[in-house]
Computed example of a mutant assay.
Amino acid sequence: MQVHILALETSTSVCGVALLSQQGETTQLYVRRHEGSSEHAEFLLPMVEEVLAEAGVKRHEISAIAFGQGPGGFTGLRVACGVTQGLAFALGCPVVPVPSLLAVAEALEKVPGQLEVVALDARMQELYVAAYRYEGNTKTWLCCYNSLLIDAQVLPDWLMHIRTQENEIGTIRVSGDALVAFPELAANLKDMPSIQLGDTAKPDVEAVAHLGLRAFLAGEGIAAELAAPSYVRDKVAFTTAEREQGLGGNPAAVWRPA
């Protein structure tokens, strides 16, 4: 059976499109990327046509469409989800939402059993964080902690919180562009016991394609109308009425050290 997975990733400033084709044990990957956060809507569909043409694949041959679900830039998430839904409706194919932080973990050198924490810059002095463990026997990711928004300064406390919740956790590897966005924080993490600093990557469409293929083959595709972005941060400021009631600070990052 020949499978063609179209993947879209626009949760960051990079607009990425990939086509991952698999027949038997052979896979081929075709990728296009464009830098420019305000240009996603302009470049996404032309890049889709480019990878399909390069691969010699017709639109109706697409098996499923995977997209970076977020969290990430609001506009980018809506572009990827909207284009995915439009194409999927037209082609009658399923959709595979891929968490953007999981896409970062997928691109790492896989160490079975090790806890992988992904921390991405969420702006406003905040981070998107999640934790995963790669299961070597099944070659799948176990989500240990779903995507969460936290203040950047409490990341060390959140990591210590994880340690208290897990038995024999071993080394925690922390990866993601937060290590670049907050260099002082990265320096502090480097001095913490059992914390290893990993890659500084952002979500990439190649990882979205591979995760999408795996999910599709496992029967995890969904109908186009069920696809939705995962914003995580859904509120950036209190209303006037809420401020008059004494609420202040950031309304979104709810996790605090005990």
Rank of each mutant, 00 (worst) to 15 (best):
M160S: 05
C93W: 06
G170F: 03
S100W: 12
W158S: 07
D157P: 00
N167Q: 15
W141S: 04
E168Q: 12
W158T: 01
W158G: 02
A103Y: 02
D157V: 00
E109F: 13
A130E: 02
Q125V: 12
L142Y: 01
S100K: 09
K139A: 14
A130Y: 00
L127T: 07
L142Q: 15
G113Q: 08
L115F: 09
T140L: 14
R173P: 10
L142W: 09
W158C: 04
P97G: 08
L102T: 03
V98H: 05
M124I: 06
L155I: 13
E126T: 15
E135R: 15
W158Q: 07
T164W: 10
L149H: 03
L108F: 03
E106I: 00
D121K: 14
P94Y: 14
R123V: 00
V104R: 00
K139C: 12
C93E: 06
L159Q: 13
L108P: 03
L120R: 04
L142A: 09
L149I: 12
V96M: 10
T140S: 10
L115P: 10
V104Q: 00
L142D: 08
E106F: 06
E126F: 03
Q125Y: 01
A131S: 12
L142E: 10
E109S: 12
L120D: 01
A131T: 04
A119F: 09
A105C: 06
A119V: 07
V104E: 02
G176F: 13
V111N: 08
L148E: 11
E126M: 14
Q153L: 11
G136R: 00
C143S: 08
R173M: 07
I169W: 13
Q114A: 03
L102P: 13
V95R: 03
E116L: 03
L108A: 15
E135H: 12
V111H: 09
H161G: 09
S175V: 05
E106Q: 14
N167R: 15
L101V: 06
A131L: 01
L149Y: 05
L127W: 06
L159I: 12
H161C: 08
P99H: 00
V95S: 04
L91E: 11
Y134F: 14
V117G: 03
G136P: 02
N137Y: 13
A107M: 05
Q125P: 05
Q114G: 01
K139G: 03
L108T: 07
I162E: 13
L101P: 07
Y132G: 02
G92E: 06
G170H: 02
E166T: 07
D157L: 06
T171N: 03
I162V: 05
N137F: 11
L108Y: 06
L115C: 08
P99E: 10
Y132E: 04
S100P: 12
L102C: 07
C93T: 13
P156T: 09
A103H: 00
P156S: 11
R123F: 04
T140I: 04
A152T: 11
G136H: 01
E166G: 01
L101W: 01
